[in-house]
Amino acid sequence: MSIKQKIKHHLKLEANRGYAISTRHHIIFWTIYFIFNTIRWGSYYQDYWYSLKGNLLGFPIHIILCYFNIYFLMPRYIIQKKYVFYTLLLIASLFFMLLVKYYLTYFLISQNVWPEGPEETHNLTFNYGITMMLGELYVISFVTAIKITVDWLQEHRRVTDLEKTHLETELRLLRTQVSPHFFFNTLNNIYALTLEKSNKAPEIILKLSELMRYLLYETKKRKQSLSKEVICIQNYLDLERIRYGDSLNIEMTISGNMEGKRIAPMLLLTFIENCFKHGADKNLGNVTITIDFRIENSWLYFKVTNTMPGEQESSKDSPTSGGLGIANVKKRLELGYKPNEYDLKIYEHSNLYVVELAILLR
């Protein structure tokens, strides 16, 4: 099943639960409304039997008019913006139901068809007609408002679920870009060492297999243990130490409690990779990289700096301009965290490339 099919299937399932109106809901609504109306008018008339008979006659009319409006008139005319036709047909249906109610009341219940009126009414008068039509319009408006509210909630939930599904899909796609990007750089390192017939190649391959095991099996979740991420970074740094030897100086400090802290997988590793891409790979002398992890409460304050080469090849290769890795991290931060849950700064200072990230840990 493709991603698009999964999204459609997911939304179809959501439409069948949550805010969907079932037959049971219709029955419960009209039953409660009927009981309330019968008690209200029975108290007003001081005749509950008469109120029951009147509501038994009137409620089928209410139900027919309401459903005729929300399931026929509105979809055909309101949605199509045919407001004049809608208004005329609604008035016509109200008038038709007025005639039905008048004659049924007159012949089945009482010849005084308007007992709550100012005087006894035996004929179809103008005041009686206007009052009855306004009463029906009130019921229609009430039911229509409920239907519109439920439809809005359904649509809001559908859009929210679609955005959530799209977000999760995009995050998965972004994460799948990280591993090939990382492996591409590491395999390039191995290739260079094999050309030199270096004895370091087997050790690098062993370290790489450990990283591959972690990346393939431990990074599928949206959030991963911070301690495991740090171990992954340490393994990566070990690979680079083997490659560069004494020309590479790495200083890494960790402070605070990492227990129970979680972070998006392979988020920080990209910044470490960037130190080598724009620092060590272009620098002919010794390279110093400092990495600092500081955990305070639920926040991680991460800072990494590396010495930069003496001359930049071109402005587009400047580390602050980013590339696939940095652009990927920025996008993942935007999608996976709220704006107030992280703060990323990337800048150059005194021939140092500096990354500072403050991020809320789950």
Rank of each mutant, 00 (worst) to 15 (best):
G135F: 03
T121N: 04
L137F: 12
K147F: 15
H122T: 07
T121S: 00
L124N: 00
M132K: 13
L134H: 03
H122Q: 06
L153A: 08
V143L: 13
M133G: 01
I148S: 08
M133I: 02
T125F: 01
T144K: 08
V143T: 07
T125K: 00
L134M: 04
M132R: 12
F126G: 02
I130P: 00
I148Q: 08
S141E: 06
N127E: 15
V139S: 04
Y138C: 13
G135T: 06
Y128M: 01
M133E: 00
E136R: 12
Y138M: 12
I146L: 11
M133Y: 01
Y138V: 14
D151E: 11
F142T: 11
V139P: 03
N123R: 14
G129I: 05
N127V: 12
V139A: 10
L124C: 04
L137I: 02
I140Q: 08
V150Y: 09
T131H: 08
Q154W: 02
Y128S: 02
T121R: 01
A145D: 03
N123Y: 12
E136V: 03
L124V: 10
T121F: 02
T144A: 13
H122S: 06
M132F: 14
Y128E: 01
Y128D: 03
D151K: 10
E136A: 15
V150S: 07
K147D: 14
Y138W: 10
F142M: 15
F126W: 09
V139C: 09
L134T: 05
W152P: 08
M132D: 10
L124E: 05
I146F: 12
T144C: 07
T131M: 06
M132W: 09
W152L: 14
T144N: 09
T131S: 09
L137M: 09
F142P: 07
F126K: 01
D151W: 08
D151V: 09
G129Q: 03
Y138G: 12
Y138A: 10
V143N: 03
I130L: 09
L137G: 02
Q154I: 14
T144I: 02
N127Y: 12
D151P: 06
N127G: 11
T149K: 11
M133V: 02
V143C: 09
Y128Q: 06
H122E: 03
M133L: 04
G129C: 10
F142A: 13
F142R: 05
Y128L: 04
T121W: 00
F126V: 06
